[in-house]
Amino acid sequence: MRLISLIFAMLSSAVISHSVQAESEQTMAVANELLAAVEKVTSEAIHSEEEFNKSLTDIQPSNAAEQLLVYYAKGVIAYNRVQLHQTVTYLQQANALVEELPEEMKAQSPYYHFHKVLSDAYVALDNYQYGYQHKRKYLIKYAEEFDNKDKLLLASLESKYQVKQKEQLNQLLIQQNKLKQVEIKQLEQKKSVQERNTIILICIGIVFMLMIVRQLKVRQKLKWLSSTDTLTGLRNRKSLFEASNGLVREALDNHLPLGIMVIDIDHFKEINDQYGHQVGDVVLKLVAKLGQEVMRSRDVFARLGGEEFVAVLPEADIDSVNAIAMRLKDKIAQEPQQVKAHRISVTVSIGIAQLSEKVPNFDALVKSADEAMYQAKQAGRNQVVIFNSASN
C-alpha cells in the first residue's frame, strides 16, 4: 500500500510540473466599430468611401493601429473600384504606420493584409518589382501568424489534456483511500483484501498504459498539425523549409543537382470574387492533388501560402525540372475543371531555378524561382519560365 501511494504521488508531481502558463502582452486598443467597418469593406458590404466614412461618424482614430485600418479600408475600396493609383496612395500611407505598431500586432490579422492588396495593385500597374516585394512581406507575416496560432493551439490542447489527466489521477487516489479504509476495518479478511489490491494494481497499470497511449496519439496529432497545411494536406511553410534545407545541404555535400519550382494559380482572386471562397478552396485542393500526381516520390511538394505552391526536386537537373513543370502546367490546363456546379478554366504560372554557385541556398532558390514565376505572369500566364541569373 505504501508503494501504491508513492506511485500516485510521483505521477501527481510529474503532471503538475508540466502545466502551461500563458503570457499576456499589451496591444494598442482598436475600436470594435472600426474593426466591424473594415470587415464590411473587405467583404464588399461597403462599396464607397462615403459609406465607410459614414460608418465611422462616432469614431476618431486615436492611434497608429486605427489609422492603419482606415487607410487599409480606403485602399480596398479604391482597388475594388479599379482606382489603382489611389489604392497605392492609401496603402503606402498604411505601410508608413507599420513601424509604430507593437511587435505582436505586426503579424496579426488584419494589420498586415494591406500588403496583399498593395501587391495586387502594383501587379495590375505592371510594377512587378514592388508587387513581388509586398507579396513577400504578406506571406512572411501570414506564416508568422500561422506559427503563432499553432503554438497557441498546442498550448491549449496540452493544458486541456493535463487537466483531464489530473482528474483521472484524483479519482484513482480516491479509490485507493477507500481501499485503505476497507483494509483497516476488515483485518480478518486480509487475504481477500490483498487479492483485491492486486487486481486494483493491475487495473491501475492498464489505465496508466492507456493514458500513455492516448498522450502519444495526441502528441502525434499535434506534430502532424504543426507540419501540415490543413486545407490541402500538403506540407506547410515550416515543414517545407525544414525538409528543403536538409536536401540542399545533402546536394551540396554530394555535388548533386537540385531544382525548385514556384507555382502560382492564375487569376485566383477573380475565381474567389466570381465563385466564392469555397470554390477557391476546392481549386487549391485540385492543384495540390494534380501536383502530387506529377511529383516523384522523393520530391517535396508544399503550399507556401495563399495560391502559391513550392516543389523541391532533389537529383534533378534543370531540364528534368522543366519537363516536370511543363507536365504539371499542361495537366492543370488540359481542360476546364468541374468545381461544384461550375466549370472553371484553371491555369498556373511556374518559375523554376537550380542550385548553383549564384543560387547557393534554399532562400536564394525560392527567391530566384519566385522572380521567374512573376516573369511567367508578365509573359501572359500559363507559362513556365527558367530563372536566368545573367538577366536578373
Rank of each mutant, 00 (worst) to 15 (best):
L3P: 11
L3C: 03
L3M: 14
S5F: 05
L6V: 00
F8W: 05
A9G: 00
M10S: 03
S17R: 09
Q21Y: 02
E23T: 09
Q26S: 15
Q26H: 13
A31G: 15
L35N: 00
A37H: 02
V41Q: 01
T42H: 05
S43Y: 10
E44P: 03
E50F: 01
K54T: 12
S62I: 05
E66T: 14
E66P: 06
A73L: 06
V76C: 12
Y79D: 07
Q83H: 12
Q86M: 02
V88L: 04
T89L: 14
Y90H: 11
E99I: 01
E104K: 03
E104V: 13
M105W: 00
P110Q: 06
P110Y: 03
F114L: 06
K116W: 07
V117Q: 04
V123S: 12
Y128F: 15
Y130I: 05
K135T: 09
K137S: 07
Y138I: 05
L139R: 08
Y142S: 07
E144D: 12
E144H: 02
N148S: 05
D150Y: 02
K151P: 00
K151H: 08
L152Y: 05
E158H: 08
S159T: 08
S159Y: 11
Q162P: 05
K164I: 01
Q165W: 04
N177T: 12
L179H: 10
Q186S: 13
L187D: 07
E188K: 14
K190P: 00
K191I: 15
S192G: 11
I199K: 09
I200K: 01
L201M: 09
I204S: 06
V207S: 09
F208G: 07
L210G: 03
M211S: 03
I212K: 00
V213E: 02
Q215Y: 06
V218C: 12
V218S: 03
K223A: 11
K223W: 13
W224T: 14
S226L: 01
S226F: 01
T230R: 15
T232H: 05
T232E: 13
L234A: 12
E242F: 00
N245T: 11
L247W: 03
R249M: 06
R249G: 14
E250L: 07
N254I: 00
N254S: 11
H255R: 15
L256P: 07
I260V: 15
M261P: 12
I263P: 09
D264R: 13
I265W: 10
D266M: 14
E270W: 01
Q278H: 10
D281Q: 01
A288F: 07
L290V: 15
L290H: 03
G291R: 13
E293V: 02
E308G: 10
E308Q: 15
F309G: 06
A311N: 06
P314A: 05
I318N: 11
D319Y: 01
V321T: 04
N322T: 15
A323K: 10
I324N: 01
K329H: 12
A333G: 04
E335I: 06
A341C: 04
H342P: 10
R343W: 07
S345R: 00
S345H: 07
V346Y: 03
T347H: 11
S349H: 08
S349E: 13
I350Q: 00
S356W: 08
K358T: 15
K367H: 08
A369F: 09
E371L: 04
K377P: 09
R381G: 14
Q383M: 05
V384G: 04
V385L: 01
I386W: 09
I386D: 01
A390R: 14
N392Q: 11
N392P: 05
